[in-house]
């Protein structure tokens, strides 16, 4: 279990912000921090991993104190067992893929894990390549594999998929879920993508101005459980156009674009880019073998 109780004054673009939050993450959970940029999500991750020092508070992980301002305890990042995947991947440009992973080995650690991780991440054929020659999705896989070399119990993912195209994102989401289960991790993700959050996480914390303003199970959090409709998806509005007396709304769900008919009174409330829930009764769709 991770127990965070943090206070920190952050200098942000829009002036100062007082971060003050309490978070409890159960062992083995996949948790997402959600919220506008500048809400304190990345700072929270950095404080957990020891890269940023809180002004006051405590960090306890599995019964061990990592930080306690009253008792003057502050473990260095080197002493905290955290795998951190940075938004820019932070691959070492002077090393090839295999060397990037090997660098992460602890002193005396068995090297066989490198081969296992390269294979699991399907990076075998790329192991001699330098990071600059890799695509975004490949870099992401290297960063993730590298974060797992030390077999951390906690995996921190700071918007790991935001720079990737949709197809790669969907693929890597599956991969993240696999990794989370296979390595029995407690995973903390920062993400803005509602579909991604619902797909991946058990629990969501919404941050605003350095505080947790809402928390809940992922599906409840975004109101996806708020109707009896069982045939439901979340997506983003791509297009709204009028046809005869109706409006046709195109919604991007995963990598499919679906169309939903709406009345004028509904269409007026929507704009392009809105995140929406699309639902129908389980009785209505037809199902066919393909």
């Amino acid at each position: 279990m991770i127990n965070l109780n943090l206070k920190k004054t952050l200098g942000s673009a829009g002036g100062k912000m007082d971060l003050d939050l309490q978070l409890i993450v159960e062992k083995g959970q996949f948790v997402t921090l959600f919220g506008e940029s500048g809400a304190g999500k990345t700072s929270t991750l950095r404080m957990l991993s020891g890269l940023l020092k809180p002004d006051s508070g405590t960090i306890e992980v599995g019964g061990t104190t990592w930080f306690d301002s009253c008792k003057n305890i502050d473990l260095k990042p080197q002493q905290r067992k955290v795998g951190y995947v940075f938004q820019d991947y932070a691959l070492f440009p002077n090393m090839n893929v295999r060397q990037n992973l090997e660098y992460a080995l602890r002193k005396g650690q068995d090297k066989t894990i490198i081969g296992e991780l390269l294979q699991f991440a399907e990076l075998g054929p790329l192991e001699q390549r330098k990071p600059e020659t890799l695509s975004g999705g490949q870099k992401q896989r290297v960063a993730l594999a590298r974060a797992l070399v030390q077999r951390p119990e906690i995996l921190i993912l700071d918007e790991p998929l935001s720079a990737l195209d949709l197809k790669m994102r969907i693929k890597l989401q599956e991969y993240l879920l696999q990794v989370h289960k296979k390595f029995k991790l407690t995973t903390i993700l920062v993400s803005h993508d509602i579909g991604e959050i619902v797909k991946l996480s058990d629990k969501v914390f919404e941050l605003q101005n350095g505080r947790v303003i809402k928390k809940g199970a992922a599906a409840d959090f975004f109101g996806l459980n708020k109707t009896s409709a069982k045939f439901r998806f979340s997506g983003e509005i791509l297009k709204i156009h009028r046809e005869d007396v109706l409006y046709v709304i195109s919604v991007l769900i995963g990598n499919d674009i679906i169309k939903v008919v709406a009345d004028r009174t509904e269409a007026d409330e929507f704009k392009i880019g809105d995140q929406v829930l699309v639902a129908s009764k389980a009785f209505n769709p037809i199902i066919q073998k393909i």
């Binding site: 260095k76 990042p77 820019d88 070492f92 660098y103 590298r146 070399v149 030390q150």
Partner: peptide, 12 residues
């Protein structure tokens, strides 16, 4: 982040 990544891997 290069430096930070190295720190989180336990490197001095």
């Amino acid at each position: 982040t290069l430096k930070e990544a190295s720190f989180t891997m336990g490197k001095s």
